[in-house]
């Protein structure tokens, strides 16, 4: 039998997605490239992100990465979003190299979200 293409963490993040959904009235960005689609929404108080939500269409690794991002950065700062790098998530979730392009779509969306929050609060 071939090895499981999904790590236990990916399986967990894919099956339980507490951050999936909408945030009405929040700052929102979206991206559509590399065969995936993502929409990120954030509420912020000053530079602090008080809530993060996502909606996405893509493979399990992409959905898991998006959920992992939201879980990790909720409560963080907008400045942190601007420095977000997909590399750590790729390693943490054991995302296949062939899916790098998809995860970079998430990276671009996250940085756009950080910039949108800053622009909105300026």
């Amino acid at each position: 039998m071939s090895s499981d293409p999904y790590s236990p963490l990916v399986r967990s993040l894919f099956s339980t997605t507490p951050h999936a959904g909408d945030l009405p009235g929040a700052t929102c960005v979206s991206a559509d490239a590399q065969g995936v689609k993502v929409q990120l929404a954030a509420s912020a108080a000053g530079d602090i992100i008080t809530a993060l939500r996502w909606k996405a269409w893509g493979c399990p690794h992409f959905l898991a990465a998006t959920e992992a991002f939201c879980a990790e950065y909720e409560g963080g700062t907008a400045a942190g979003l601007l420095e977000f790098s997909a590399g750590d998530l790729m390693n943490e979730l054991a995302v296949p190299v062939t899916k790098t392009g998809r995860i970079l779509v998430l990276e671009d969306a996250v940085r756009s979200l950080g910039q949108a929050i800053r622009d909105g609060s300026a």
Binding site: Q39, K55, W57, L63
Partner: peptide, 11 residues
């Protein structure tokens, strides 16, 4: 479920 968590234009 997959439709519920997809962006509007993808679902």
């Amino acid at each position: 479920r997959l439709r519920r968590i997809a962006p509007g234009e993808a679902a």
